[in-house]
Design a binder for these strands. Structure first.
Lengths: 343, 343
DNA sequence: AACGGCCCTGAGAGCGTTCTCACGCGCACG
DNA sequence: CGTGCGCGTGAGAACGCTCTCAGGGCCGTT
């Protein structure tokens, strides 16, 4: 019982192929009785349109590519990415659009991916975790392929993007630490070739200045967005400035590393040193004590990415759209928040 | 500069469409000079085969579906899933096969997914995190669509699968605890409608018996594979049997919850209670103390899934293939392993 | 010199859609 | 009663590829 063609359905319904096609695609210019007889035939025969044939003539693919470019595997351990995918799935659910995942983890695969994407196999592309100035978004865009970037795009490229408010989140985190009476606040940054890392750092500096203090370069160390990097950075910071009483880590993973280092150094958290992370991922709940963190809903981010992309595809325009999503500071024990309570 | 067709390439190379097609598909019956001239034309014009047209005639899609059915969002927080995807991507990389992600998180989306998959849009399907006796694998199989299940398939269905050695891993974990001199070993299980949870529990029981001890139902509590569930289960266990000196949790997430509960109850880990988790996910390194855990490489699992599926598709047979991957116990501080050292 | 075989090639049909165009019908209008 | 128009419909080309089949060229054999 394989899938019947339009032709077969047409015969069964006593009409022409064209009419069946019209019914399938919801054209209004079909007599009600024709429509009903076609619908009955479709139901009986279990007809499903052949996507390839449709694509061949319409030049639409009804699928979008999601590119995760992560050569280092860096963010891959980070669970945030699964959530984004779920969000994208949710954003796509209302439409018959499918999601093609393109992993590119080596220069070789990167070339393949680029070829695939420019080969007209997808109607649009969502790009992720870009580094430095990856030329891919502009390259795709110049080929007329709608593109949306998750996170800030590299180096002011003229590309649509959906991002979290990294800047505002960092400020909220630092203000919180200041309100807790902390005076020597350090930061562990991400790799500064990633826009999100840069922006979080700038938020940190701005909040420090806004409080009338002078940023101190000694209170800053890169943790590379990894757990180990965070741990090492914390060790360096403690050695350099033993009087640190608070740390803002630009990711939960790095915050977890910092907690280990603090523990090893015999500092109590939050009594001696308060710690705030960023992402509010599952990791924030697994640490001891539970980690205060800047929450960003990656699922909402994903949904928004899908929306913006679909909008761009539908409009067929070259309008660059920007969406910045709010973040929210979740206070837990690591920064002296509610000692127990809502985890 | 849109993508040229076979026709255009043929004209440029001074041959017919058929010959170009032969070159593209690597047919050996092409004169060397024809081939070269075609290859040159392809390179110059930037030709890429149109997949839709190809699919239309060959009835191959060159794409496989990966279904993540996770209505509860339960495993989604778990980062393991990103790794599996990466593995699948790696397994597919050698071939021009793309990966279509199908998220189904509601009964509605589930129906859509089933329709999509049976609609002939993919050459094969990888299924994930199935519950109870999900009929989907058998349904697809009966429609002639190659299927591979990640993890144990529901209820002895006759379906290919790739699984980790949950049984052996659990035994290794418990044996380790026994060797450490622990005498009252409890377990926190996953939801017993999931095969992996059942198997890990059976491994636990078997190891207990193999040591000449008698399993005690009081030393067993379900944690539902969630962090909160693990915490609650640990509280229940401590209340029921205050003399517990070791816990085997069937997932890292639950182990993390158990650590919180132990901490709250003033028990020292590992001095008073040793803890071993399962999965060796990123969480195992974020806990304090670092968690001993049964390691399973989800990336290898993913790669193997892709391999088995491709094999089945190529062979066009209905042979049911089973692959069981080794697990390995990683000992860290939570079970009294190396006090520092390799994290 | 005629013939069979092999190697390479090209013509052309066909895959299942969509979409343009033209046609037949019924109706209102002049 | 002819003309024009809108509505619903069908015929048929087109999309870009694969694959079968037939045929031309060249060899060795009889």
């Amino acid at each position: 019982m394989s899938i019947p063609t339009l032709e077969v359905v047409a015969r069964a319904a006593g009409v022409s192929r064209a009419t069946v096609s019209r019914v399938v695609n919801g054209s209004p210019t079909v007599r009600i009785e024709s429509r009903q007889s076609v619908e009955k035939a479709i139901a009986q025969l279990g007809y499903v349109p052949n996507r390839a044939a449709r694509t061949l003539v319409t030049r639409r693919n009804d699928s979008i590519g999601v590119v995760i470019a992560e050569p280092t595997g860096r963010l891959f351990g980070d669970p945030y990415f699964a959530e984004v995918l779920r969000g994208i799935g949710a954003g796509l659910a209302a439409r018959e659009v499918s999601l093609v995942l393109v992993l590119s983890q080596s220069p070789d695969e990167e070339r393949r991916a680029a070829r695939y994407l420019t080969g007209g196999h997808v109607d649009g592309v969502i790009l992720f975790s870009l580094h430095g100035n990856d030329p891919l978004p502009e390259h795709l865009q110049s080929r007329g392929i709608p593109v949306v970037v998750g996170g800030q795009p590299p180096h002011g490229a003229r590309v649509s993007y959906v991002d979290n408010d990294n800047h505002g989140g960092a400020i909220a985190a630092v203000n919180h630490l200041i309100e807790q009476g902390r005076t020597r606040i350090a930061t562990i940054t991400g790799p500064l070739d990633m826009p999100a890392a840069v922006t979080r750092r700038l938020g940190f500096l701005e909040a420090i200045r806004a409080a009338g203090r002078t940023p101190d370069a000694n209170l800053e160390e890169c943790g590379g967005f990894t757990r180990e990097g965070g741990q090492r950075a914390m060790e360096v910071l403690l050695q350099r400035c033993p009087d640190i009483d608070a740390v803002f880590a630009a990711s939960d993973l790095m915050a977890a590393g910092a907690l280990s280092a603090l523990h090893a150094a015999g500092r109590r958290v939050p009594e001696d040193v308060a710690v705030v992370g960023f992402d509010d991922s599952i990791i924030a709940l697994s640490t001891q004590p539970a980690l205060s963190s800047v929450h960003q809903s990656m699922e909402v981010t994903g949904r928004e990415l899908a929306n913006v992309l679909l909008q761009t595809i539908d409009a067929r325009d070259q309008v660059v759209r920007h969406v910045v999503l709010e973040t929210e500071l979740i206070v837990r024990q690591s920064s002296g928040g509610p000692p127990t309570g809502k985890n």
